[in-house]
Amino acid sequence: MSKKKFRISVVLPAFNEEKTIKKVIRSIGSWLNQDEVSVIVVDDGSRDNTFFEAKSEEALVLRHVVNLGIGAALLTGLNAAESLGSDIIVFMDSDGQHRPEDLTRLINPIKEGKADVVIGSRALTGSKGMPLHKHVGNKFLTWLTNLLGKSKVTDSQSGFKAFRSGVFKKINVTCENYAVHSEILIKASRAGLKIMEVPIETRYDEYTAWKGTNVFSGIEIFLSLLNLKLRGEI
């Protein structure tokens, strides 16, 4: 593997994550100690102490003064990562459900030039512990993403992804809600970018099981993708 020191930005969109944000930020550095790492926390209008908890850590903390949604937070983080001149950009959840030890597995294919986009797929480890409503929704949205993007991914809704920075010069991301994950994959696939999946395990507990997507956000994703299709963007 190349010995080049990469500039990696880990984007953590956070909404009311005061309980977990510190631990997640601290855990990242210990697993990416060979590279120059920026942790970018985008506090998406939290009503709790997320902003100040994150600010006390070694992280760049950006704040949305009002809550805009996950997609908007990711796009802000993406803009910041590009401004910092990152080679690799990673999206990771800030509720602690993603294991930091999977970070190297996620970014290595990009470092080695084998992939432009790497998805941390929960389906490759049997979606262990995933609540039924998320499992069914994920299956449907992954099928739809594959249909629209002519791709063969197994977990389109995973929030744990890594990108070669040049990806976002080739695709224009516009969705500001949960549909952003599908939109990126569909556009990346259509642009002929190399998409790879690596197996990851997620920790689901009482706190994380009911966060993130639900049936309503599933419907919102479906409508957003339909909207993109009708506008000819995908």
Binding site: S38, E58, L62, T76, N79
Partner: peptide, 13 residues
């Protein structure tokens, strides 16, 4: 949010 980008504290390693 992006106007606060000039903080060098975030860089590790």
């Amino acid at each position: 949010a992006l106007s606060k980008l000039s903080n060098p504290k975030h860089l590790r390693n």
